[in-house]
Design a protein around this nucleic acid. Structure first.
Lengths: 174, 174
DNA sequence: TTGCTCCTCACGTCACGTGAGGTGGC
DNA sequence: TTGCTCCTCACGTCACGTGAGGTGGC
């Protein structure tokens, strides 16, 4: 059977089969005259087994090892895999718990930075401000209300040194 | 603060920070004369937030979007992420169930093996072995290398009970 | 000739990790 | 000079997906 037909029959993609061939996990036993891959019944059986193991979440490396190993390995590998899946679920549980906590106490996220420099400049840029416009805006602010400018920059939790720098830049002609 | 110190303080690697810089998720606000990255307090705060979201399992793309979005987005994103985590856990549950099923019924995996008992005896018979010769061969194998005999029978994916039977038979005089 | 299937590269993905080769400050 | 930290590429990982450019059989 050829690659396209096999892919359809097993509900996987051709590129998956091409990949399995490349890494040596499943090489078709034969090639046609025109160099088409020919999968035998034994190849198909091997693919079924690969699919089955794949559904347990094993990596292709695990599966390759398992398929060359004596049979006693199977149960052992499955147990190892069971452990890994359990670990993964545990860590996803941690994620769930964190999300719920954050949803319950949005303050955890809020005062990390209610409004900061990055967010602010992002807003201005999104509104169409370019560097030139930004400079004009700061210059105006600094000229008409220097104290409020200072307070505003503090409000953005910008470090003092940077504030000084920004205000100096706001006083220059360009 | 410089990249190495920041990495240590946050328990992440330098290369992570280099990566965040490259993709534009967290660019240090400044560079020293010698071109060293200088992270400001605001950068550190942003990193904390990124770490927090990262622990919910969001992708860096999600996080970048969230950090530029208006604050109302946060709850929505967290809900979406909660759904994704739940889905992921469901699919891991499927994996668990499959593994348990396979551990319970190893027959599901049995005769898929490329070399099995039927194929092997077929080969021997094709080579002219009859029952008598087969018995002699097994007896010899069992007498001279019992452990290898066991391994070989396992290699043919023969169930354990049958292996025991064959080896007992191999130890009899006839 | 047209459609369909097949072929072989080669490059992209995601979130980093790992060198390689070089520079700057004490 | 020695050690430490930093820099910028470039390539590797995992399990494929997606073209690009070309061939074979009806």
């Amino acid at each position: 059977v050829r690659i396209g037909a096999l892919a359809r029959r097993c509900g996987i993609s051709r590129s998956t089969l091409l990949y399995y061939d490349r890494i040596g996990l499943l090489r078709p036993s034969d090639r046609s005259e025109s160099n088409y891959r020919q999968y035998t019944d034994a190849d198909v059986a091997r693919l079924e087994q690969i699919r089955l193991y794949r559904q347990t979440g094993m990596t292709l490396g695990d599966i390759a090892r398992l398929l060359r190993a004596p049979r006693g390995e199977m149960a052992r590998s499955l147990h190892v895999q069971l452990g890994r899946v359990a670990e993964r679920i545990e860590s996803l549980r941690d994620q769930q718990r964190l999300i719920v906590r954050l949803l319950g106490k949005p303050r955890l996220l809020e005062d990390v930075s209610p409004m900061n420099r990055a967010r602010w400049t992002a807003l201005l840029r999104a509104a169409g401000f370019d560097d030139e416009a930004l400079h004009r805006w700061h210059r105006n602010f600094e000229r008409t209300a220097p104290r409020e400018h200072q307070q505003f920059l503090e409000f953005l939790s910008i470090p003092d040194r940077d504030i000084a720098r920004i205000r100096a830049w706001s006083r220059t002609g360009r």
